[in-house]
Design a protein around this nucleic acid. Structure first.
Lengths: 195, 195, 195, 195
DNA sequence: TATGAATGAGGTTTCATTCAT
DNA sequence: CATGAATGAAACCTCATTCAT
């Protein structure tokens, strides 16, 4: 944990995180015992505890890592000067495409949000304690009166709720999303909140 | 199991289901070991197995029970002769109000949908194998060209996705939904799909 | 138990014994829980306890019933006036044919002998406390000096040991015993002890 | 499991096997719960599962261990150049002496043969899939026409059946085998099959 | 007398975590 | 630092037995 400057350590931690994402994504929290995570990561069981205090920390840390990677992806080509609408469209596109390109990542995130761990995360985000892009976009939109004057959680719900469900259905094979459908859905989301 | 005609047995089964909903809703699947379910239901551990073959059957059976109770609630005052829009509004209202009135029920349903159990359920519903009110509403709307010509999963996603998220946020205390806000959100959902 | 004069009771007890033989014979002691025995016998679980004090008594009682039925079979056509050799041949023939005609009976008896229950039974038989045909045959043979002067258990071992094993192998399908082979084996057994 | 090169591990596995033999031998399969095996072996319950996948594997593995030890004993002083008769006598002597010297070993083997596990073992042995000394002896004898032309299972039955029974009776205290009696019995066995 | 639902002790197995090497 | 064998609490489930009906 405190050897994050050494390359070998960083690689080992990355392997552990990747193994966690895969196993939780594939089989749920039940199907990801520490020993199995260790095996898939190519390290010994005890080694995980040098990087994460316990299993809870492993799960939370893995989620944070995914979130950071998402942030990085969203920032690529982000229309800093665009309207909130354009910003939202960019954000939503990246999000959905990431989820359907990496089903295990998506599954992990879903599992996480639906577990006790997830609640605290969500609280920080909604209350703006942990500022992020998403929060900024809607604040700007509210100020410019581009969206209805609703509480942030409702705006989030109306926009991201659908994106989550359709990504899930795509990954389960219930629909086959293509660019057009994705675009239509994002449009629908925006229609739900635009003024 | 086969004593469903006796009042005592029905009460016992109901107690087991209630205990399951509460414990899973409060602490997740992890936090609902059979022994604890039994204790809260006021029965012996072995007794559960007279009503449910194993833990999986207990979870699935509990979900089905919740679903049936929802159906019953929705049917009360259902606008059989109304437009699809009116039907959807009725359905959505009942759904959200139930969820925020019974947070443990909502939490259980959420957990369920995010578990392997949930996928099969959802598949049946989306493919129309297990016809239900919800499916009927959108089919009628599609025929009357009242909603956009999108695949069912996307229509569901656009409409129920937000309802799920805002109910979650309400239960977590991030927002305090009142009738007006609920109505506005449902309106937003419909805007997302209406033609 | 104390209603052995009523026909219905006798039939019920017989059904319980038959169910016990079958289940133990088919799946071993592990595979014969009381509830299953009851179900196959067509009675309620609690009913068994009116006929047998507990599971041990059920097993022991079932064994005794089988033994009595064997005795009855052996006595049919028994060469009372014959030589010990003829008597042994008759006994052995009946035994082997019964075992290969009723594999479950045989399996039950085997299981029984190899369980703690069996030891006491065998003790009584060998020590002559519980006199029986078999014991009589060899005593007569010893007196007439038709067989070697060996302790009874050894004479039993040399004669019945093989019969047990070949019956087992037949029932497992390793060999297909016919009358000739049975006769040859019995002959071999007698050769092992004859003077 | 994969630490069989370390002395400590080998000792631990041996302790588990020994505990299994003793408990099954003394009290049957019923009387050997994993927790008790662990306690007697001086390890924690979970430790057994590092060496054996489950209880079945423990039982089967223990049997194989006993068989290997028997093989080793038989090979000491084995009359490679002797006649089949001499070889059989050697084999039988070692067998009986081992059984009456180690009653728990004998009891374990008996229990094993009478369980579902045992059938597969026996099948392999009789069909020659798993070649062994015993099988070789009788094949040689058949070729040299030293024994009657009977199916292998019958030859085995006629020779080992008695040995098993008398060992059992000795261990139960019904007879007290001495070298002479053992020799006489083995002689009897051979007489049963010799041409 | 017969029933069968209920009991709860006890069985097998898993797995997060520790610690000697 | 890394290892992975060992731990033992705790999970799920079975089943002999009882007892109200």
């Amino acid at each position: 944990m405190d050897c994050s400057d050494k390359k070998e350590c960083r690689e080992k931690k990355a392997a552990i995180i990747q193994a966690t994402v895969e196993l939780v994504g594939e089989h749920g929290f039940h199907g990801a015992p520490m020993a199995m995570v260790a095996e898939r990561a190519g390290v010994a069981a005890g080694t995980i505890y040098r990087y994460f205090e316990n299993k809870d920390a492993l799960i939370t840390g893995t989620y944070k890592d995914l979130e950071e990677r998402l942030q990085a992806k969203v920032l690529q080509g982000f229309p800093e000067q665009g309207t909130p609408r354009e910003k939202f469209f960019h954000f939503a596109r990246v999000l959905v495409k990431w989820w359907i390109a990496s089903p295990v990542d998506f599954r992990f995130v879903e599992q996480f949000h639906n577990s006790p761990y997830g609640v605290a995360q969500r609280r920080d985000k909604l209350l703006g304690k942990q500022r992020n892009l998403c929060w900024d976009i809607f604040h700007e939109a509210l100020e410019q009166q581009g969206v209805k004057d609703l509480p942030l959680p409702i705006l989030f719900g109306l926009t991201f709720g659908p994106l989550i469900l359709i990504s899930r259905d795509h990954n389960h094979g219930f629909i086959a999303l293509d660019d057009t459908m994705i675009e239509q859905t994002i449009e629908g989301c925006w229609n739900a909140v635009k003024r």
